[in-house]
């Protein structure tokens, strides 16, 4: 088992961290998890139309899959691509098992409002932020699954077109068109909103 300090691990790439974790360095996983937990969690949460309970379950499942699959890990691709590929497959499985009809799922406003309680010194600004947040999430939730998936992978995982194509299992041109259509729709929805200063 290799022994690394935290600073040394922070300097390593995702792939090196995963290789170290595979070889028995548990601390490498801590760094890796800290890097990707937020983006992955939001990706899963948005994909599930902000249903937090299911998102929590699936989020843990995805990480457990990664932990179990560590023995066979080879650094042939980008780690984030592999991680989001696992997440995408888990979501697809979930939709299949639950016969999830994504277009008919209503946006859960109450959960979002409860989640985003923040102790701000300016109540007016906070209210405005919450309204905008709600609208963005609602707009994303109302997107078709393919477009939403492409936009979220771009936003949360910062994946390139090729990587999004690899994760979703389509070609680059399809990813491009999905992104264009997705942004167009969001633009229409978010037109009246101003960026938060």
């Amino acid at each position: 088992m290799n022994s690394f300090s935290t600073s040394e691990l922070d300097d390593l790439t995702d792939e090196d961290l995963m290789l170290n974790y595979r070889d028995g360095t548990a601390a490498a996983f801590d760094v890796l998890y800290a890097r990707h937990k937020g983006g992955l969690y939001r990706y899963v949460l948005r994909q599930l139309n902000n249903r937090q309970d299911i998102a929590n379950e699936l989020f843990q499942d995805i990480w457990m899959k990664l932990i179990n699959a560590r023995v066979n890990y080879q650094a042939t691709a980008k780690f984030s691509t592999w991680l989001y590929h696992l997440a995408h497959n888990r979501l697809v499985d979930y939709w299949r098992s639950e016969k999830f009809i994504k277009h008919h799922v209503e946006f859960d406003e109450t959960s979002e409002l409860a989640l985003e309680t923040d102790e701000s010194s300016e109540p007016h600004k906070e209210l405005q932020k919450q309204q905008m947040q709600q609208q963005i999430k609602k707009a994303i939730a109302e997107l078709p699954e393919e477009q939403r998936s492409a936009i979220l992978l771009k936003e949360e995982a910062s994946l390139s077109l090729a990587e999004i194509a690899e994760v979703t299992g389509v070609n680059r041109e399809t990813v491009k068109s999905r992104l264009r259509y997705g942004i167009k729709r969001l633009r229409g929805v978010l037109q009246p909103l101003r960026p938060v200063s």
Binding site: A26, F59, K129
Partner: peptide, 27 residues
């Protein structure tokens, strides 16, 4: 920018502990 400003959700500490605990115990 708008999305980044509002999209700040993180998994709960309990989930973090679960996942990290599972990772460590697996090793």
């Amino acid at each position: 920018e708008k999305y980044k400003a509002v999209s700040t959700e993180e998994p709960s500490e309990a989930i973090d502990l679960n996942v990290l605990g599972a990772a460590h115990s697996a090793v």
